[in-house]
Simulated assay, not measured.
Amino acid sequence: MVSTATIISMFVPIVVSIGLFVGLILVYRKKTGIAVKPVVIGALGFVVATQILEKVLHVVVITNFPNYSDHPWLFGLYGGMAAGLFEELARFLLFIWLLKKFHDYKGGISFGIGWGGIEAVLLVLMTVVPNLIFAFMINSGTFESSLAGSIPADQLAGMKETIVNQGVSFYLLGSLERFFAIFLQIVFSLFVLLAVVKKKFSYVVYAILIHAAIDFPLAFYQTGHLKNLWVIEIYMAIIGLLSFVFIKKARNILPHTTR
């Protein structure tokens, strides 16, 4: 059985992710102003770059290398570089093709909120909502009977064990991770915009490498070689705090325009 407390905690990251997206728009509307077009383009850019194009590559790679979890170092290198390439190049192309009139601090912030906000919402909905549905099925006794025909018995048992054993802290910490991750996406958006403004593509290369370096350690948790979720959350918190500093500094580096 999945405890009532765990089921309630599953709603927390859903509320937090949606609240963050909406809250950042409201906060920055007062602080710097919000440009609607970059928010929309940023959100659509994330979906196309990561949920379509990058996932096509992942399907090909994982299909040909099914034992990737046995090699966390290589998996981390591949995963980090793939994320960096698809996301940072997509940001760069969107800024120079579709957002030519938004090469200012407000445009960068707006784009980052759109990109990071939709990431927070989609990733939570795709991971937590299925777990929530499965939790209700487990508690009602219909989990095995409903999924037996579509999922092998050993995988079904593993899924059930995972959902039952994931406690309240798992979902609460996940909410904290989303909080810091969204600010990191704003940082990358501002950094790539800086590359566009200063006409230095080398900054995009730096963004790709930094993105890959940040994502690399996460592979050890994803492949099961690192069990302690607290290590990941502390790591993300440090990255998040550094992100706050950069966002503040970027205000004095990027141009400001009034529309």
Rank of each mutant, 00 (worst) to 15 (best):
V22I: 14
G23N: 09
K37P: 07
F111Y: 12
V56Y: 01
G108K: 07
L53D: 02
P38F: 12
K30V: 09
L99K: 05
E54R: 03
Y78V: 00
L26F: 10
I34K: 13
G114Y: 05
E88H: 02
K37D: 01
L98H: 12
K37Q: 05
A90Y: 15
H71M: 05
P38R: 04
G45T: 14
V59T: 07
V60A: 05
Y28M: 08
V27I: 14
L74R: 00
P38K: 03
P72I: 13
G42E: 13
G112W: 15
V36W: 13
V40D: 09
F86N: 07
V48W: 12
K106C: 04
L99A: 07
V59C: 08
G19H: 14
L93P: 14
W115H: 12
L20K: 00
G42P: 05
K31Q: 10
W97M: 12
L77S: 02
A35G: 02
E54A: 12
I41Y: 05
E87L: 09
D70S: 03
N64P: 07
K55P: 15
T63F: 00
I113K: 02
A82P: 01
G112Y: 15
W97S: 14
L53I: 09
L26I: 15
A35N: 10
I52T: 09
I62Q: 00
V60S: 02
S110W: 06
G19S: 15
S110D: 09
L20R: 00
K37F: 04
S69A: 11
F75Q: 01
T63P: 00
L44R: 11
A35R: 14
E87Q: 10
D70C: 00
G76M: 03
G76N: 06
I96Q: 13
D104P: 02
L77P: 05
I34V: 03
F75M: 06
A82M: 02
N64Q: 10
L94T: 02
V22F: 15
M81R: 04
T32I: 08
L44S: 12
V61W: 05
G76V: 01
G23K: 06
D104Q: 14
K101F: 01
F95L: 12
E88F: 08
G23P: 03
K31E: 11
G108L: 07
R91Q: 08
G76P: 08
Y78Q: 07
G79M: 15
L99H: 03
